[in-house]
Amino acid sequence: MDQVIDKIIDTLLAYIWSPLIALETMIADYLPGQDIAALIAYAVYVLIILAGGFLAIASRNLVRAMLGLVLTFLGVAGLYLLLACPFLAFMQILIYVGAVCVLIFFAIMLTRNTNEGEESKLPGIGSAIYGFFAFVLPLGILGPLIIINVPKLELKDYGQTDTKLLGEGLITNDVFSFELISIILLVAMAGAVFLAWRRRPTPDEAPK
């Protein structure tokens, strides 16, 4: 009986794996010495990031553009996972998707949304040329460098994330940058409150 079950499981596994193995050998011919699963995961995340970026610049509507930004942030979080830092990946989603994007949406709603802003028109020739250079220059400089040294990709079992180590690092070695960032955020917050502050008129000087 056990043998029969084993045989069934083996057949099922072979059925699931065989297309994957075929794909694996195909890719292995082109890129020797790489972990295929890691490559596929990397490709998926990069595609998500690029699709998000494209959506963000190509939409004629600010809310759709914001959705592109959300997609990009999710892809970057995936890359953090691939780098075996789940803590950073979750923080990326928690802060950027859960807070920053939601606040951006709030800002969009506070402004007049008549679909007549800059984003609703096609860009002019000048900005198209600038955009082209902004795309080609980093590609031309960084692209060959990346192609020359393709890093070895692998899926790691990340085991324990040492949150304690991270916290200790923040208050010992990197305490200066940590405090600097805190001060910048505090100044930004105080500045926002100062700009938005309007003294409430007392009853006798209230506008008639």
Binding site: F90, M91, V97, G98, V102, T161
Partner: peptide
């Protein structure tokens, strides 16, 4: 078993808000 389990929950719970506002 996720070591940062509660972070995972808090992070993905934020997506619910995005669906509401959309």
């Amino acid at each position: 078993q996720v070591d940062d389990g509660i972070l995972l929950i808090l992070a993905f719970a934020g997506l619910g808000v995005i669906s509401n506002i959309l």
